[in-house]
Design a protein around this nucleic acid. Structure first.
Lengths: 211, 211
DNA sequence: AAATTTCTACAGGTTTTCTCTTAGCACAAT
DNA sequence: ATTGTGCTAAGAGAAAACCTGTAGAAATTT
């Protein structure tokens, strides 16, 4: 049977090393590359062709979403599985749009990971139950995942979360306080919250802000 | 040299298994027990005496804080290291108060973990740079841990964090909105924050509220 | 070239927050 | 018996938040 060549991209050194060993134990599985840096992985793709890639979402320098996009530009049929924390789950739309073939949580078992890799390797898709549930929940609640915040809105969201008033934000960004209020209103509309308290909870849950 | 016996409590199966293998590679280190369930670990302590324990914070059933407390009741000199995600860092006060001897992030390296285990095993304390930074940040900002909130203030703090207005809180607690505002002012004075955004951050950092 | 999105800005309004101050009542301490 | 604390309440005003709507300029997409 052919050896499945696996690459791992994750900035959590301990986790990455652990996964490497876990996979090393599985028959026919072989880790051919691992790194904490998406750019190094993209360089690696210049001359190598892993069968399956395990990719974290939130990483410094270049995140998993961007790395996935660029990887697919390089090797259009590359098999990438997002391997992330549950807290990153809110980014699954971006990851799926970027073109991942699977989604496995870091809290899942070795067997689930093994299964996911095998399925994706054979050309299928594998998505954890939790992702399916999240999808179901969202569509039940009329959540529109398409409505994403613009860059400016994200800037302002961050400053709001840091406790700045509209006036202070305006001064910091050299724009009118009224403009800030407009952005603020639009953010409230898109996130479907009523006040700053709700906004902060949303921001934390969606990885726009961390406490 | 004596073998260091290590126990791991973490609900993320993949991570736990990985760590087990990582540690297994280190000379004189030996994983004698690992579980996803704090209760099973406490049972294990009835008859076994690990040298160092690696403990996650957020877990189902019984979290790392409670597990740590109970473990120390059973074996007062037990060496527990919190091994957590950065996002769990806000719970460090509770963990430290519970009695952990160290704090290492999951994103740190194998070498840092090895160092932490060795130091704690020899009776010392080990806290990641990130934790120190967080502590430094707090003391720089005139953080006073002495001023404690009254029960009523805690109730109201929680409702504020949930996004209720003073009016709504008043209705819920069958008191005047003016009274709520008084409490609110007192909370602001005690916590030394300027607005709701700051209050929520404070509440999360001090475990009065979690997102 | 046309359409869409984003960023900017303002008007006019209501609601809520926040500050400051004062004060009565209950309860516990000791 | 007095002192301290906690909960309650209120007035009065300034500041900020929040709502609704409009709208032009710039950038981006199609």
């Amino acid at each position: 049977m052919k050896q499945i060549k696996i690459a791992i991209i994750d900035d959590h050194d301990l986790f990455r090393e652990g996964i490497r060993l876990v996979i090393g134990q599985i028959e026919n599985f072989e880790v051919v590359f691992d790194t904490s840096n998406g750019y190094l992985f993209l360089e690696f793709l210049q001359h190598s062709f892993p069968d399956v890639v395990l990719m974290d979402i939130s990483m410094p320098l270049i995140d998993g979403i961007e790395t996935t996009r660029k990887a697919i530009e390089l090797q259009s049929s590359i098999n990438i599985i997002a391997l992330t924390m549950f807290s990153d789950i809110t980014n699954y739309t971006k990851m799926i749009n970027a073109g991942v073939k699977g989604f496995v949580l870091k809290k899942s078992t070795k067997f689930e990971l093994q299964q996911a890799i095998s399925i994706v390797f054979e050309g299928g898709n594998y998505f954890s139950q939790e992702i399916i549930k999240k999808l179901a929940f969202r569509s039940n609640n009329g959540f529109q995942g398409t409505d994403h915040l613009t860059n400016r809105e994200i800037d302002i969201l961050n400053l709001i979360c840091k406790g700045l008033t509209s006036q202070e934000i305006a001064e910091k960004l050299f724009i009118s306080a009224k403009t800030v209020e407009t952005h603020r209103s639009n953010i409230f509309l898109k996130t479907n919250v009523r006040n700053i308290a709700g906004l902060i909870v949303w921001a934390v849950n969606n990885n726009y802000f961390s406490i």
